[in-house]
Design a binder for these strands. Structure first.
Length: 426
RNA sequence: GGACAGGUGGCAGAGUGGUCGAAUGCAGCGGUCUUGAAAACCGCCGAGGGUGCAAGCUCUCCGUGGGUUCGAAUCCCACCCUGUCCGCCA
């Protein structure tokens, strides 16, 4: 959500920033509405001021027993009130229009975000690890998996496409990955473990910017709630409508939850394997930050996500997303892409975004600055995957596969595997 | 799902038709006192908006949305939420 005051003062900057993401120039439209609203407000408020004044006078006149003066004033108020509803209605209508437009606009990209339209314009800024050299042809996880307990047919029978049924050692490995990540993020990286709701209301989804524009990517329950597409929704909304003490910042939260996505628009993409599922697990990181420190929190959170890949010894590269490839709420995003030898390519496994005050405005999440500064300020919100569990499972299967179809368990996961050191094909 | 009780400022908690944006307490901020701190005392202290160079003036907000009234935190209706008890249930 954008600040109309900011647009009023920086219309060119606003348009230029939106243009970077492919948006059309719109500041003049918004400001025309804004001007109209303010004129209507002033008119309305003058009427209200006079009404209030007269009502007080009526009270006084009645107290003094001056019925005639009271009657005259009441007639004036009645006259005034016959005109006010029209102005009021008009003001509400135009304000609503402006709000709807503002609510649908994406965040402005940060200055250091490269221009560009799609993923081809993303910039690699770092990479880690050497892709392993295989002395056999590396297979995709969807080829290796079935013999190890990754069962797509059974899931399809009961749920349709884009679901998986994990059995035995495969299910255990997924759990091990999730547990390990959660332990890392809580014990090593200082995030507080949370177990949030998976079903949320409209307001919560609007708060992170997923509504009103992206309803078709989510599942909705019969009573109108939404299944979270990511724990970002639940964790970020934990501070909605609050005025926090500055000393509480930053608030670092993490949760291991299932995520549900309908992804109506992605038909035909990644139909094979675990890469794109309607249901998957993810360890999410969220930070509620002081505006002055969100950029450094962004770096810190990215490192927290990277620490998992390094511990698992999975090669990856770090991408700075171009303006056109970012999510609507983000002002700057890093993607971590893990090396998948079976597919011979890097695939996104984590996306870490600084949303600035974009979500905070929508949620009305503020803090009270220390000292003499008056009023409140909006917090900054950040979120990132730390990491997506399903895709990590894919990466482990493909990177640790052996010629005989078995998969070696990365050493950091061994404590979670109950003695299993390799997944053996059935 | 049923019955009852509630939703008021950062928190606690008064307020049942008119000087109420709202007592009081806590927290916070400024000051007096003190070598310093504590205590005590004094003062300030809700959010958002309009207008104005500014001082200021003014509007809206007491869960949300409607309604009654010259005037609503206070009365009426609907909805949402919380608590307690009952029922059901992992």
């Amino acid at each position: 959500m954008h600040d109309i005051k900011y647009i009023r003062e920086n219309p060119e900057v606003f348009d230029a920033a939106l243009a970077k993401r492919g948006g059309e120039s719109t500041a003049q439209n918004l400001l025309a509405l804004d001007e109209q609203i303010r004129a209507l407000k002033t008119e309305l408020q003058n009427g209200q001021a006079r009404r209030n004044e007269a009502s007080k006078a009526i009270g006084k006149a009645k107290a003094q027993g001056d019925e005639e003066a009271a009657k005259a004033l009441m007639a004036e108020v009645a006259e005034l009130k016959s005109k006010m509803p029209e102005v009021e209605e008009k003001e509400r209508e135009v304000s609503g229009r402006l709000q709807d437009i503002l609510a649908a606009l994406p965040n402005l990209p940060a200055d250091d975000v490269p221009p560009g339209e799609n993923e081809d314009d993303n910039v690699e800024i770092d990479s880690w690890g050497e892709p392993r050299v295989f002395d056999f042809t590396a297979r995709e996880h969807s080829d290796i998996g079935p013999a190890l307990g990754l069962d797509f047919e059974t899931a399809a029978e009961m749920s349709g496409a884009r679901f998986a049924f994990l059995r035995g050692q495969m299910a255990k490995l997924q759990r091990a990955i999730g547990q390990y990540m959660l332990d890392q993020q809580t014990i090593e990286n200082g995030y507080q473990e949370c177990a949030p709701p998976l079903l949320v209301r409209d307001d919560a989804v609007f708060g992170v910017g997923q509504l009103p524009k992206f309803a078709e990517d989510m599942f909705q329950t019969t009573d109108g709630r939404w299944l979270i597409p990511t724990a970002e929704v639940s964790l970020t909304n934990s501070v909605r409508e609050q005025i926090l003490d500055e000393t509480k910042l930053p608030i670092r939260l993490t949760a291991l939850t299932p995520c549900f996505r309908s992804e109506a628009g992605s038909a035909g993409k990644d139909t094979k394997g675990l890469i794109r599922q309607h249901q998957f697990e993810k360890v999410e990181l969220v930070t509620i930050a002081h505006p002055d420190h969100s950029a450094q929190e962004h770096e810190r959170m990215t490192k927290a996500a990277e620490s998992i890949l390094r511990a698992l010894e999975l090669p990856y590269r770090k991408m700075l997303l171009c303006a056109g490839d970012m999510g609507a709420a983000a002002r700057k995003t890093f993607d971590l892409e893990v090396w998948l030898p079976g597919q011979n390519t890097y695939r996104e496994i984590s996306s870490i975004s600084n949303c600035g005050d974009f979500q905070a405005r929508r949620m009305n999440a503020r803090f009270r600055p220390e000292g003499e500064e008056k009023g409140t300020r909006f917090v900054h919100t950040l979120n990132g995957s730390g990491l997506a569990v399903g895709r990590t499972l894919v990466a482990v299967l493909e990177n640790y596969q052996q010629a005989d179809g078995s998969v070696i368990i990365p050493s950091v996961l061994l404590p979670y595997m109950g003695g299993i050191e390799t997944l053996e094909p059935a």
